[in-house]
């Protein structure tokens, strides 16, 4: 089986205006930066983006926001982005903020064929508005629905032509969950290796969830908050 495509431009074929796309990453860590750059070039508009964060002004999803390509964001935390805040407060951008754990589970549920689940997160807050409440073991929970997307775009460290993926460090985050929830899932990897090179025992995302895979041209891997300790 060979799911390899040539490059980011080929990988994003079929992403059209007004589609819903999921993008892996936490902050700028583990984001599919090659595909984001290509989406900016392609100029698709009216996108609903499901992603934990919205990038920063000059990088990540911030690049799509600058070009006004995003109609709606579904995220848990959107600080560190002035243009985002401006578009949201002015009403240009629709924003659905949901608890981070619920976001993770909603993507996982979408990929796993579970239509909805109960969680305690958000009970008694505005997140719970309009949602069914049910008590389990005397504690209130709200019903959250699964999320799926026309396309999911994930970033991994290593992958093979079968679509098997291994992530590195905290660049894993939402990527394995979103990989499961795309009707078409694109994986951009730092290293595309030969079949058999990845030890099956250490594969994080089995290839069945991936439809297209390519090795990214370059990864800038920008650091949002560079913090170090002195060596003395």
């Amino acid at each position: 089986m060979n799911k390899t495509v040539k490059d980011a431009a080929s990988a994003i074929q079929g992403i059209k205006d007004n589609m819903t796309i999921m993008l892996g990453g936490f902050g700028l860590c583990g984001i599919p930066e090659n595909c984001i750059a290509e989406l900016v070039k392609a100029g698709v508009k009216g996108l609903t983006c499901i992603s934990n964060n919205a990038g920063v002004d000059e990088f990540g999803l911030g690049l799509l926001l600058q070009q006004k390509q995003i109609k709606k964001m579904i995220s848990s935390y959107v600080g560190e982005n002035d243009e985002f805040e401006r578009q949201m407060l002015s009403g240009e951008l629709e924003v659905d903020l949901i608890p981070q754990g619920s976001l993770a589970s909603r993507c996982q549920a979408g990929g796993a064929g579970v239509p909805a689940f109960y969680t305690p997160a958000g009970f008694g807050t505005e997140v719970a508005h309009g949602k069914e409440v049910r008590y389990f073991n005397g504690k209130p929970h709200i019903l959250e629905s699964a999320l799926t997307a026309d396309f999911a775009i994930v970033k991994a460290w290593k992958g093979d032509p079968y679509g098997n993926l291994i992530y590195k460090g905290t660049a894993r985050n939402f990527n394995p969950l979103m990989a499961m929830a795309g009707k078409i899932t694109i994986a951009e990897v730092e290293q595309l290796v030969e079949p058999g090179e990845l030890d099956p025992n250490f594969v994080h995302t089995p290839g069945i969830f991936i439809q297209r895979i390519f090795q990214g041209d370059k990864f800038e891997k920008r650091i949002e908050q560079r913090t170090v300790r002195s060596s003395t």
Binding site: F26, G101, A104, S105, A171, K221, Q225, S230, S231
Partner: peptide, 29 residues
């Protein structure tokens, strides 16, 4: 330490961090 920061290792505040021996990494779910 300065020079050893790695973009793939951050905390929830998006700061570069390290993992202690015996630590582990997992997905958001």
């Amino acid at each position: 330490f300065e020079g050893e920061e790695d973009a793939d290792y951050i905390n929830a505040g998006k700061q570069t961090v390290t993992i202690k021996p015996g630590g582990s990494i997992f997905d958001s779910a």
